[in-house]
Design a protein around this nucleic acid. Sequence first.
DNA 1: TGAGTAATTTTGTGATATCATATTCAGTGT
DNA 2: ACACTGAATATGATATCACAAAATTACTCA
Lengths: 229, 229
Amino acid sequence: MAKADTLNVPEIDFGADRTTQEYVYARLRNAIMVGAIEPGAHLTMRGLAEALNLSPTPIREAVRRLSTEHALQILPNRRMAVPLMTLGRFEELVALRITLEVHAAARSVPYISDIIIEKMAALDDEMDRVLAQGHYDALTILNQDFHRMLYAVNPHQVCIPVIESVWLQLGPFQRQVLVRLNQVPGVDHHKQIINALWARDVEALGEAVKNDIREGISRSGRQILEQVA
Amino acid sequence: MAKADTLNVPEIDFGADRTTQEYVYARLRNAIMVGAIEPGAHLTMRGLAEALNLSPTPIREAVRRLSTEHALQILPNRRMAVPLMTLGRFEELVALRITLEVHAAARSVPYISDIIIEKMAALDDEMDRVLAQGHYDALTILNQDFHRMLYAVNPHQVCIPVIESVWLQLGPFQRQVLVRLNQVPGVDHHKQIINALWARDVEALGEAVKNDIREGISRSGRQILEQVA
DNA sequence: TGAGTAATTTTGTGATATCATATTCAGTGT
DNA sequence: ACACTGAATATGATATCACAAAATTACTCA
């Protein structure tokens, strides 16, 4: 079925007892997060329903949730599309991402344990391996896991959903950046993050997170958007 | 009908050509934002449907969207409730609110015009009038309008939805605070915000926003949560 | 009287049916 | 060829229907 390729992303494994709507939501969200759906692409609910062999009802619920997160756009014609990126919006999103993640990282420090740092280091090593093979999707996922692991150690944490919402908005465009440049950023700022964690140094951690985000996407993304404009 | 009182909030006026789902979403969101629904309260979709004279379908969509924003909680039994507040979560939400709003305010400064400042001052005056009459709901709405007006002058702004999501999570609890204390915070930090805007002083603006949030809800909220715990 | 269990009711979920609107396509006339 | 118009089609939105799971109630037995 041609429509299925709209989500050219592997089926995700899924606990059996969840709802269909949740499955669709998770699958679409994942596809958008790794940039599997091109910005500007138009989707139809019935198309998605046919592709996933479901009725429109759970599709609509999932799509509505994603539009609330600004991962999808409901156009005035009631059609939906993946939002296009502009330079202004891009810079706002990156700036917001830095502010949020520096904040979340700082509030995680009191709860950091050696075990967590070691787990994060292990994730970073895995990223190096995946990087060598050029698996961009896996790289994106691992990078997010790395960051999320840090923010999640704070037991009262409320930032992660907000941060993920920003990731979601940057996702489709980030893929374009990776594909166009056909290379990933050179320096690995994750080592810097890990060092700051070992030292429990809030200042250094903030700097490291900021650099990681800036170098990871900001510079190259701005290049591309400027040459278009 | 008794169920309708679940949302003891006036009907909001609503453009005629929007969808039912959007109407339900807006109405529920508003009710939660001003704290019209008590934390811990259980809602049923069919109950809401009956109260609003609608089928469960648009209700489900609206509720799903709100649960994505963490304004409602879907329990493992598939029931839904307004989340309860804890001290830890409260402090995280307030800290996040400060970080976000200081960020958004700073990024608005380059776009500030005298006209906007005057409009904000007018809103603040109206708040003083409403305050004298003890209309807490109207006060909450006006306060949000005041803040939103500032952040919205940035044309590439992406913060407002995120900030509103935090407001939404604080809403039900904030109402409890106002009711229990039966008074509103004394000093009006909005004047301080407006002065900083006239001066185009980013530093002072950040301080003013921080103080406004802290004094407005943080102190009294913490008091209440601590005496419970 | 109280605890456990079966029957009833309520509820959430997803598929289907229906309707209004938007889009696409074919045909007409210039 | 090209713009315009009307028919046909596709789409989104909501209500209704069917089903399964959960909650509630009623009932039984100790």
